[in-house]
């Protein structure tokens, strides 16, 4: 290992294992919260789409209520949301700290955002295709499952990518109030202890993570477009 070189470049970083652990924590928070965000946000986005005026199941009141709730959650800055949600978090997972404590606010912060992206991806599906399916006797559920979601696949992949990257930012913010991970290291060592090499390394790692997510998302989107023969 090139330990002497690393020591010269980053004199304040004495525990690389801690940095490795922080990386892992960030990835776990990201993976866990992204999975739950999609699980929660996808149905919410579908519901927002279906209940809108002129869509398959127009329910103006429900739509307005959902849209309002989504807008409220989206207008609270994440770091405030995290503090406000602490009792809820404690009730849900039994702690306010660590990876487990971070996941509820991450999901509640990101799911409405993701739901809006899902809604706009579904809106891009041509109405004619939906009408043709209705003419073939498809039920609303069949249209969602076999028409809207597959036809919007490219947009949905992009939505997951954008949400994952937003979640990377959220996890870093979460670090400041006890969630752990790279954001926590950057905040504690880099900001509070003036160890700027910590800041540099964590930021570099976050940049790499975001790049990887974007590249993966682009690759999946391109593959889905190729499958459509484009």
């Amino acid at each position: 290992m090139t330990a002497p070189l690393l020591t010269t470049l980053f004199p304040n970083i004495d525990d690389w294992a801690e940095l490795g652990q922080a990386c892992l924590d960030t990835l776990l928070m990201l993976g866990g919260s992204l999975a739950l965000t999609v699980l929660l946000g996808l149905p919410l986005g579908v519901l927002l789409h279906l209940t809108a005026r002129g869509q398959l199941a127009p329910m103006p009141r429900l739509n307005a209520a959902l849209a309002f709730a989504v807008n409220v959650l989206r207008s609270v800055p994440f770091i405030i949301l995290m503090i406000v949600l602490m009792p809820v978090t404690y009730f849900l997972v039994g702690t306010r700290l660590g990876i487990r404590g971070a996941i509820p606010p991450l999901v509640i912060g990101a799911a409405p955002f993701f739901a809006r992206l899902v809604e706009s991806a579904l809106r891009e599906v041509e109405h004619g295709v939906v009408e043709a399916s209705q003419a073939m006797g498809a039920s609303t559920w069949q249209i969602v499952r076999h028409v809207l979601l597959p036809e919007a696949r490219g947009g949905l992949i992009a939505a997951v990518t954008v949400t994952a990257i937003a979640l990377v930012g959220y996890t870093a913010m979460g670090g400041a109030i006890g969630a752990g991970g790279l954001g926590d290291l950057a905040y504690r060592y880099g900001y509070l202890s003036y160890k700027s090499d910590y800041m540099l390394v964590t930021v570099a790692l976050l940049v790499v993570l975001v790049q990887l997510i974007q590249a993966l998302g682009d690759w999946l989107a391109a593959r889905s477009a190729r499958r459509r023969g484009r």
């Binding site: 004619g128 043709a132 003419a135 036809e151």
Partner: peptide, 17 residues
């Protein structure tokens, strides 16, 4: 009943995926 009535469209409305 709709399954017993076929329909075609100006813009075809096929599933692109």
């Amino acid at each position: 009943q709709r399954r017993r009535i076929g329909m075609i469209f100006q813009h075809f409305n096929l599933l692109g995926s």
